[in-house]
Structure formats: structure tokens, C-alpha cells
Design a binder for these strands. Structure first.
Lengths: 235, 235
DNA sequence: CGAATGTTTGATGACCTTCAAGTTTGGTGG
DNA sequence: CCACCAAACTTGAAGGTCATCAAACATTCG
């Protein structure tokens, strides 16, 4: 039995090229986490001397327990950050997307596993570079701290919604949150499958599916196909 | 209806005296969170120029949304850190105890409310003092960051156990965790009531009570009275 | 002693998981 | 192009866990 995904036929890391400096301030889409601050100093760090990597779907980006010797910025694609409990249950803490950082809240070893949901392009810098920059740059320190605090708040929000709200409500919240990053008027495409959503929201695949149909019949959302949805503002 | 507690007949903050510097390295008990590192630099900060406050049970220490202008170190007692959802449900994120810090993961305003569970004595320093110290002390920065990261990991563990394990198992985990800080061989006293435990573990008071009896009948724990328990190592 | 609060126990129903089918979708090869 | 297959998604039925309502019991405090 494979460890993290049912069928990890996805590829392995594929180093592409040294930094091509084509990233223009990450500016297009808003952050997923509302409370994540602007991050000019942190992104600048990746503009200077980063290394690009490309991952196929279900490829492992970093593995729980191994040395945390780098920090990542997502150039494109979606990354799932998760852990596995003793009894094999998977919990996906977050789906990180374009412009978001991965690995800034670890110091010695990774405390989670990161995998590519779809095709992912990453920029990475050695952790030592980050640490050196932190030693001198006070703005960078503020940003990093704000980012980690924002992640903490996000987890607490998850905890809260896990306890208070039922399956359809949680799903709607997730979809709404996901949709806020897209300004588009049309359908939004979910890069992750039902199992991923289930492991993120703490329910079974079947319950996710049923929650989708509940939201659909209540006309809170519309579904073009399984992975294309739209939120009904009218409701 | 009162906001946070059923009957906040508890007292208000009672400024006592300026720092009496009687704190000897906080060393006696281990930390609750396993991954919390040694914190000499941070505690030293409180030894230098701190202010003592005393709170009666259910007294409000700091209020969600207000300015985060201080940082706290618990000298004695137990503090609950919580938020309230729109529908009135309370979620207690952590019970902070002697030697632990409160408020180090907030930057502008508090994102939670802290209340005294029993009689609590706090040492506090202005946030500005912390910030000034951080600007020059690299060790302090490392410690602070490690602390916040540890809290993040703790929340993720909570998330995981909330999803994976059932009520009795979660309760046992909580009790075990609580007991690790006490080296004593006898019964351990819980400072918080069933409702607090319920709001911490994400279940109803009745379920907490039933989980206690389940653990008792399975001989995993012993109960002298409602708030004095002991974990059976044999099991 | 009696009132009040906190804890336990019982009964019922809601919600969700699990198991077990169907149904759709996407890809491959004839 | 269409048939076929595998994977993902959906739907149904049965059972388990937990929340809720309700009542009994315990403890504290006046």
C-alpha cells in the first residue's frame, strides 16, 4: 500500500532552470488566507536567487520528518500540505496556491508532507539564505512572523468551523474561500479531487459528494461538472 | 446573556505590585506542549521589568479584537484561550499554565480571548519592550519563532485528533497530555470544569461525562472525584 | 435545610461513516 | 469513431457516534 496517495503515479521533482526572474510581484490574485499580509520582502528574496522545480500531479515536494533545508514559493499550481495519523487517516491542513509560501513555519525538520495536486512550479531558496536575510532585514522578520501568525489563526479558524458547522456549511465555506481568489465571473475549476477535499474538511468522500448535492439543490452553488463550480451570489 | 462565561462572577484584573523578581527560571515543571523549546531569553525578559497582575476565576485577561499591547507569562494558575463563533459556540484552543506565554502570536490586535480558569497570577511586559528586545537579540528571535511554530503544530495536532479519534480517545489524550506536566504519583486535579473540557475537545458536556465513565470502566483512568484523576499506566 | 450550580445518566433523533451498489468521465486501443 | 476499461464521482441503505432534551444526583454555600 502506498503511503500518501492511492495511486502516486505522479512524477518526481524535475529541476528546471535557475531563476528566470519572471515573477512580477505575485500581484494578480489575492491571497487565500484573508489575513496574510503583503509580502514584498519575502517575495523579493525569491526573485534574487531562487531555483525552479516542476512537479507532476501527486509528486512529493517535501516529506514529513526530513530536514527542512529550503523554503518554497509557489509559482503555479496547487500544493497540499498534510500529515498522516497513526491509523492512516490523512489530514490536509491547507491547499497552497500561486504566490503562497510553503515551509516558512518549520525550523529544523518538516512537520508535514507537501505534494503536488496538479502540475506545480516552485521557486525555492536554501533555508540558510532566508536565515541570513532575517539576521539583517527587520522588515523581512516582520513579514515572516506575520505569515506564521496568520497560519496559526487560519488553523484555529479551521478548528472552530470543524466543531461548529455541519458538512454542507463547511463545504460552502471552503468553496467561498477558494473562490475569493478568483475574480472571474464564470465557473471556477477545483484542482483537487473529492478525496482531497474530504481530507481537508474532515469528512468522508461520500459526505463531500452529498454536501455538494445539498448545496446544489439549495441553489447555493451551481456545478457544471464535478470540478467546475460557481457560487450563487443571490442566495 | 453574558458573552464568554455562563456566570462571570469572577473578578477583574487586580494590579498587585511591580516585579518582585522572585521567579527562578520557571524551571520546575515541564512545558505542556512537548515541542516548546527552552525559553531562557524570553523568560529573562519577564524577569527584568515585568508587572504582576492577579485574576479571580473567570476573570477576563484579554479580549478578542482589542489592541495587543502586552505579552504575558503565567506565574501561577491556568488560563483558557478561546474564541466564540457567530452562533455562540465557544472553542478553547489551549489551556496555558505556569511558565507558558500568552499573546506571543499576535501582532496588532488579539485574535482570541483569554480568561482565568482558577486564580491566576501573570507577569506582563509592554509589547514595545518585546519588540525592542527582538530588534537586537537574535536568540530571543529564534525562541519567539520556535514558540509560535510550536503553537502552530499544536493546533494541527488538535485538528488531526479532532477528525480521527472518538470522544473517549480524545479525552484520554487530553488527560495524558495534562498529566505529563505533573510528576506526582497521586491524583491530578483538573482546574477546569467539564464545560471547559467540552469546548476544548469539541464535544458536549454530556459526552465529556460519558467519555469519563467509559475510560473509568475500561480502567484506563481512575477518578477520585469529578476533578481528581489518575492515569493507569498498566493499561 | 434549601437553592444553585455542576456532574452524571437515560432516551431520542440528527448527522455522518461505512458498505455496496450505480453512474459518469477520461483515456486507450481496435 | 466507437467500444471498452479504470478511476472518480454519486447515490442508497444500515449502523454508530454524538448532540439534545430531560431528569436524577452531588456538592457547595447561604
Amino acid at each position: 500500500m502506498t503511503l500518501l496517495t492511492a495511486e502516486p503515479r505522479g512524477g518526481q521533482p524535475t529541476p528546471l532552470s535557475l531563476n528566470d526572474t519572471d515573477q512580477r510581484s505575485t500581484g494578480s490574485g489575492a491571497r487565500k488566507d484573508r489575513s496574510v499580509p503583503r509580502n514584498t520582502a519575502l517575495t523579493a528574496l525569491f526573485g534574487a536567487a531562487s531555483f525552479r522545480q516542476r512537479f507532476q500531479p501527486n509528486g512529493t515536494i517535501l516529506l514529513d520528518g526530513t530536514a527542512a533545508d529550503a523554503v518554497y514559493l509557489i509559482a503555479s499550481g496547487t500544493v497540499r500540505c498534510c500529515t498522516i495519523s497513526e491509523d492512516g487517516q490523512r489530514q490536509i491542513f491547507r491547499f497552497a496556491r500561486k504566490g503562497e509560501f510553503v515551509g516558512i513555519a518549520d525550523m529544523e525538520t518538516w512537520h508535514f508532507t507537501a505534494e503536488a495536486v496538479d502540475i506545480v512550479t516552485l521557486k525555492s531558496i536554501p533555508r540558510a539564505v532566508l536565515e541570513r536575510a532575517l539576521a539583517t532585514d527587520i522588515t523581512l522578520r516582520q513579514e515572516l512572523r506575520a505569515h506564521i501568525c496568520a497560519q496559526l489563526e487560519a488553523r484555529e479558524q479551521q478548528l472552530l468551523s470543524l466543531v461548529t458547522s455541519k458538512a454542507p456549511e463547511r463545504l460552502l465555506h471552503f468553496l467561498t474561500d477558494f473562490a475569493t481568489t478568483r475574480t472571474s465571473i464564470g465557473y471556477i475549476t477545483l484542482p483537487m479531487c473529492r478525496r482531497d477535499i474530504a481530507d481537508h474538511l474532515g469528512m468522508s468522500v461520500e459526505t463531500v459528494s452529498r454536501a455538494f448535492t445539498v448545496l446544489k439543490t439549495r441553489q447555493l452553488i451551481e456545478l457544471a461538472c464535478a470540478e467546475k463550480f460557481r457560487i450563487n451570489a443571490a442566495a
